[in-house]
Design a binder for these strands. Structure first.
Length: 580
RNA sequence: GGCCCCGUAGCUCAGGGGAUAGAGCGGCCGCCUCCUAAGCGGCAGGUCGCAGGUUCGAAUCCUGCCGGGGUCGCCA
């Protein structure tokens, strides 16, 4: 039940009646007509811009349209008043029964309240994390993982058919480096001193891999040349890293539907097939690139190479798909992989990348546009850096010194719920400060805690009521006499709850899960405010002498709790039962 | 130098065509014999980086500039 959508339908209906009555010209487009919460609650419950939007196409004065519309709307649905204001806004007020019906709907629908069919089952592939299988996941990956997972949940909630996917970069030079690094640890396990040369991965996490290799191969590989062991060691080490990454993701509560392998595109003709398709469209050719403007790289030399004509799609220059040694650039398997996703029948592709990959957005979008012949949009969400703090002091990270903070470090110190919520309190394209002390603070300064506390308070009320012998199961509460919820403060909370379905759609359309976190904070704030009113006005407490009154008021609290719980569910955060 | 992101209250950030631009923190003043005061209310605080443009209307869209960050063929 989306009261805003329902009211908008009333407005559209009234507009159509005006057309039929000759009060508006025929053929108007009502798409831009919106019904929204007003900026200032004093203006009313909802506001529509209909008169202002239609004034120009109808060649009429906005206030004239608004006056007629107001007259037609009064009394329809739960609309009790419609007043023209400002430049042509129409401010609407709804009867208490409308808001009470929302509370009843929440109790009836439970966690499904706010679900939408906005997506109409559109098949969306969300590819995220896709960390190289060369080591543990670090903080940057953590934010990408949380964002991608929450976005996927949000889209699912809004009616899309969502697939969570991880692309394993197991085909490039970096996994050869991994193999060499693991081989040194294997030598170490055999009692030799490892030589971690410049460019190899020095982390301790490869020590157990070396030991496992010793278990498997004994000393048999020690004197062998790289050509003998590279493939096997690489395979083993990559699998071990992926195992570690899956465990890290599990710690965060992230579960992928599909893991796709870059390697599976090599030597199978799949890269060639994708490029062949592009070549057939005249988009792959042999040619030379202009040198980059500004300062040239020291070793720049012009050479002919295989290029993808991404400039056709707005990129700054065409992009090479083959290296000078004849091997593929990373871009080539990426093209094949995205072609594969298109071929699997997705209607929309979403990639979640680190912001440092921003330079590759245009070429990837170009490739998908070409491969799908413009049918499948690719949205790329860039995730900005996470800056770590402790005691307000920046945390220095250095991969070389091995002091980089892993996902595991963060989750073990802050907990998965806190980590997830905090990482969703910023837009994906804004940098995020993560302070280990602040996120664990138990006060209203900490949004995670604040929202959890609101939910815990609702649970507390339900427990107290049950102890007092009041039936508080959802079915009973849904059947309560909600007409008793007449106080302005109670209706205000109900109005906030009523915004939830609308907010879900806005967040899903914008692919912005952070909006959920901000809404939950506002809802929690309203609940805390209402709770405190009970201090001054005993009649506003949830538990009253009279059982029927108690049930009505508890229904309101429970409805808030249900929405908080659903919202936290989208963010992947467990709602707290109590704060002890 | 090209491209991308950002610039909103002292600080951290929401808002991304509509009404007098919001929240939290910090500052000041209040509220517990009462379901968790780990909370709530109020006051003070703004040339929405600058300059043009589009529009009935711009923090929001367009252009240019300034400032910060990222990135720039054979690493992914």
């Amino acid at each position: 039940m989306n009261l805003f959508a329902e009211t908008r339908a009333l407005v559209i209906g009234a507009l159509n009646d005006m057309v039929a009555a000759g009060e508006l010209p025929a053929g108007l487009d009502f798409a831009a007509v919106a019904v929204e919460p007003p900026r200032d609650a004093a203006h009313g419950d909802m506001a529509t811009n209909a008169a202002m939007v239609l004034a120009k196409p109808a060649a009429m004065q906005p206030r004239a349209i608004a006056e007629t519309l107001a007259a037609r709307l009064k009394g329809r649905g739960g609309i009790t008043s419609a007043e023209v204001a400002g430049p042509g806004f129409l401010n609407l007020r709804l009867a208490p029964a409308s808001w009470q019906a929302v509370v009843r709907a929440v109790l009836g629908d439970g966690g499904k309240f706010g679900r939408s069919d906005l997506g109409r089952g559109t098949k969306v592939n969300v590819e995220f994390v896709s960390a190289n299988p060369t080591g543990p996941m670090h903080v940057g990956h953590t934010r990408g993982a949380v964002f991608g997972d929450a976005l996927a949940s949000l889209l699912d909630f809004a009616g899309y058919g969502v697939t969570r996917e991880y692309y394993i970069n197991d085909g490039g030079a970096q996994v050869d480096v991994l193999a060499r690094s693991a081989f040194e640890r294997y030598r170490e396990a055999n009692g030799l001193s490892p030589e971690i040369a410049e460019g190899l991965y020095p982390g301790d996490y490869l020590i157990p891999v070396g030991e496992a290799l010793k278990e498997k191969y004994g000393a048999s590989l020690l004197d062998q040349p790289e050509s003998v062991w590279l493939v096997d060691v690489r395979e083993y080490a990559t699998a071990a890293m992926m195992q570690m990454i899956r465990e890290d993701l599990a710690l965060l509560g992230v579960e992928m539907d599909i893991y796709s392998s870059e390697k599976s595109f090599y030597g199978t003709g799949r890269i060639e097939a994708a490029l062949e398709r592009l070549r057939g469209l005249g988009l792959v050719y042999q040619g030379k690139l202009e040198p980059p403007k500004g300062k040239l790289p020291d070793d720049w030399e012009e050479r002919e190479q295989t290029l993808f004509r991404s400039t056709e799609f707005g990129d700054d220059q065409d992009r090479p798909v083959q290296k000078s040694d004849g091997g593929w650039t990373y871009f080539a398997p990426d093209i094949a992989y995205h072609y594969d996703k298109v071929e699997r029948g997705f209607d929309v592709l979403i990639d979640v990348w680190g912001a440092d990959h921003g330079g590759y957005v245009k070429r990837m979008k170009a490739a998908v546009s070409a491969l799908s012949e413009g049918r499948v949009p690719l949205e790329i969400k860039l995730i900005q850096l996470v800056k770590l703090f402790k005691n307000g002091e920046p945390f220095k990270m250095s991969k070389r010194a091995g002091t980089f903070v892993t996902l595991r470090d963060v989750v073990e110190q802050a907990g998965a719920d806190v980590t997830r919520f905090v990482m969703l309190t910023r837009k994906n394209d804004a940098p995020l400060d993560f302070d280990f002390d602040k996120v664990l603070e138990q006060s209203k300064d900490n949004p995670v805690w604040y929202v959890q506390y609101a939910h815990a308070r609702v649970r507390s009320v339900l427990r107290k009521a049950a102890e007092a012998g009041i039936a508080v199961d959802d079915a009973t509460l849904a059947g309560a006499d909600l007409g008793k919820l007449g106080h302005e403060a109670e209706l205000a909370l109900a109005r906030k709850i009523a915004e939830w379905p609308r907010l879900v759609e806005i967040a899903a359309k914008g692919q912005e899960p952070h909006r959920i976190a901000f809404y939950l904070y506002e809802l929690a704030s309203d609940l805390h405010a209402h709770w405190n009113r009970g201090n001054e006005d005993i009649t506003l407490r949830f538990i009253q002498e009279d059982t029927a009154t108690s049930q009505a008021k508890i229904a309101l609290a429970r409805a808030a709790g249900v929405v908080i719980s659903a919202g936290l569910g989208i963010l992947g955060v467990t709602p707290a039962e109590e704060m002890r």
